[in-house]
Design a protein around this nucleic acid. Structure first.
Lengths: 223, 223
DNA sequence: ACAACTTTGTACGAACCGGTTAATTTGCTA
DNA sequence: TAGCAAATTAACCGGTTCGTACAAAGTTGT
């Protein structure tokens, strides 16, 4: 509960950065769980180490808080993607790794997925207000662009499939796997979401994406 | 505004079925637009031909209304799928047609997609209460099962890719195309969602799914 | 004719919930 | 240690919103 101040000095009773961070973390969980209109400021405040007044002191109002949560969600997830090193791999291997990583990454961050779902329900209007988010996401496709460039240079990849389209397919299959788990599993059972099922889906996804990227006469090596 | 009674006889001043229908239609739009907690009963009532009192008379409370809206949404969409005739087509053609149809069908029913998104935010808890929805959806995969059976019998399809998995991939790519349009287009532009872009994505989806279903030595005829 | 069902309309209560007012404490600086 | 801005606390407010009460009348199947 009582964490050490984010500030260097110890013994301080005031800790603005820590308070902000604490509020953001709690708010993200609550918004992810209940949506923008479903989340309750009082509930967020209660789960915080501080008081409701501080939420308004630092974030203005509910929508302001939601906006910052949205930014923080994108920031965290994009930060987790930076470490991936793909330049030393041949294009096909790099594409496979990127696709697998995305699948796993989304699977590990269900709250991020839920925040994005909620933002889509709101037609992306809060995202549009954030310059930060646009900047963060612009870089999200650079790795894929590099892979495609190398793939085309070596004559393996099709010329008419764009990085953006590949990103779309990878995202769709990885996102849906988390976003629609509740309804899908209640209709068809949850075998698909057990470890074996997930491995299969992931392998399918990789095979499909690689199959799409490769020229047809280079596909024979695929299973 | 004033529609003729759903009942056959004319001159009736009472029309329970019509009132229910009208309330459901308005409520679906409102829930799809604002979510369960975001939608306002008073707002729904105002857009109805009848009064708030009738909503409670027929549906009990807000959650009861939402539950019926959810059922109605699934019922409408599944009903629209029934007409599709695939038995006369060879398996690969049938699979293509089914995939294309699903893509277009979801694209034509954004409110249904939004309702399903909202239900997933609520962890599918209202869906679970409805036996009707489970029944409706159980049949949603039968067409695909028939196609797969024929495909395997003729030696074209892989034995280790199940109808459920194919349904999952088709659903993921078709669903995401509607559900994440707002955030995706705000980050990467909306070229992908213009007619040309949509045709490309749809063609990719079909190619990927068919490529996955087919045995590797039967894939050479693909573009 | 009679009972059950359907419709209309208003007004209201009570909880909920986002946001504020006002006052106090803490820490930096000089 | 005085002064001042930033940080923090706790009680409070007013509008919103779900749901109901009440009162009455029209309609339909039997």
């Amino acid at each position: 509960m009582t964490e050490k101040p984010a500030n260097g000095r110890s013994g301080w009773k005031q800790d603005p950065a820590g308070v902000r961070k604490n509020i953001l973390a709690v708010a993200m969980t609550e918004f992810a769980a209940n949506g923008l209109s479903g989340a309750r400021i009082d509930e967020i405040a209660a789960k915080t180490n501080t008081s409701k007044r501080m939420i308004y002191y630092y974030f203005g109002d509910k929508e302001g808080l939601y906006g910052r949560v949205l930014e923080e969600a994108y920031r965290q997830v994009r930060a987790g993607e930076q470490d991936l090193e793909l330049d030393h791999l041949p294009p096909v291997e790099a594409l496979k790794r990127l696709a697998e990583f995305t699948f796993d990454h989304h699977s590990r961050h269900p709250d991020f997925i839920r925040i994005v779902m909620i933002e889509n329900i709101h037609h992306g209007e809060y995202m549009e207000k954030s310059e930060l988010i646009r900047l963060l996401n612009a870089g999200a496709i650079q790795k894929l662009e590099a892979i495609c460039r190398r793939g085309r240079e070596t004559g393996l990849f099709r010329e008419d499939v764009t990085p953006l389209e590949l990103h779309w397919h990878i995202s769709a299959l990885s996102f849906f796997n988390v976003s629609n788990r509740a309804t899908f599993s209640r209709i068809f059972g949850d075998d698909v979401f057990k470890p074996d099922g997930q491995r299969t889906l992931r392998a399918h996804m990789v095979a499909m994406v690689v199959g799409l990227a490769l020229k047809s006469d280079r596909r024979e090596t695929l299973g």
